[in-house]
Computed example of a mutant assay.
Amino acid sequence: MRLNIPRFHWFLIILSAFTISACSGGEETVAEKPAPVHIESGDECHVCGMIISGFPGPKGESIAGDSQRVRKFCSTRELFAWKLQPENIHQNDTLYVHDMAQTDWDNPADTALVDARDAFYVAGSDAKGAMGPTLASFALEAEARKFANSHGGRVLRYGEITLADVSGGMAMGEMGDMDH
């Protein structure tokens, strides 16, 4: 028994079968988040050019998803000063900061790096980082509140931080005039 189907219809049937098989071929793979990179003794801050090690307070880093390019920052303040710029704010990069509840303020250990977007920050405290006032970073809100109770400031989530929080009340132009 031969089916009497016009050639054009055969073409559509084959094309449909091909399209369905191509669409259902494989599972989409989600890119795995890159691990934090250790801060080495000679690493320089991406924003100010200072050598990062040897300064107190939390540091930060950005790892670009597409190129795996790593940018390191001498403080969370510098990380946010860079990240909040219009050309950087929408980049899909992985960000890390030190969880200061897990490490010493004067010598933060890279084993305490946590996802910056999940962290809690204390802005306006009396604690100083590499560039003076900085944002104290914590993995847990309770630790951030405890720090704020001892050192002043207010607790913020990643998405709540603005350039005003980063500048510490100074105009952004004055930030470049600070002593390093």
Rank of each mutant, 00 (worst) to 15 (best):
A22E: 01
A17N: 04
R69K: 15
I52A: 12
L15P: 03
T76V: 08
H151M: 11
C48H: 03
G176Y: 04
I39P: 10
E28Q: 08
T162Y: 05
V114N: 12
Y121K: 12
N4I: 13
A123P: 03
D118S: 15
S167R: 08
K33E: 11
P58K: 07
L156A: 07
T162F: 00
A81G: 03
E160M: 03
A81D: 01
S67G: 03
I51G: 06
N92F: 00
C23P: 00
K33A: 11
D66Q: 14
D106K: 14
V166S: 00
M172Q: 04
D106Y: 06
M131T: 11
L84M: 01
I161H: 02
P56A: 13
I5Q: 11
D99W: 08
G57P: 07
T162S: 15
A123Q: 06
E78I: 00
S137A: 15
E143L: 02
L140T: 05
A148I: 01
A171Q: 09
R117L: 08
E27Q: 14
I52T: 06
A22I: 14
A164N: 11
A35I: 07
D110T: 05
E78R: 09
Q91Y: 00
P86M: 02
D110V: 07
L15Y: 10
A119Q: 12
Y121V: 12
G132N: 08
Y121N: 02
Q85R: 10
M172I: 12
E160W: 01
I14K: 05
N149K: 13
R69V: 08
K72Y: 02
A142R: 15
M172Y: 10
R157D: 05
Y96H: 04
E28S: 07
G49V: 07
F8L: 08
L156E: 01
A101V: 04
S125F: 08
M175L: 15
S24R: 15
L163K: 01
H151Y: 14
H98V: 08
Q102E: 12
G65R: 14
T29C: 12
A139F: 05
K59Y: 02
F138V: 14
K72L: 04
P133V: 12
K146W: 04
L79D: 00
S137D: 07
F8K: 14
S21Y: 03
Q102A: 13
A116V: 11
A139W: 01
L79M: 10
Q91I: 04
D115S: 13
G153D: 01
V114Y: 11
P6S: 13
P86F: 04
R77K: 07
I14F: 12
K83S: 02
A130F: 11
A123F: 10
A116E: 06
K83D: 03
V114T: 10
Y121Q: 10
E141D: 09
M170C: 03
C48K: 11
S53D: 09
E160Q: 14
M131W: 06
P6V: 13
T76A: 04
V30W: 01
K33V: 14
I20V: 15
M131P: 02
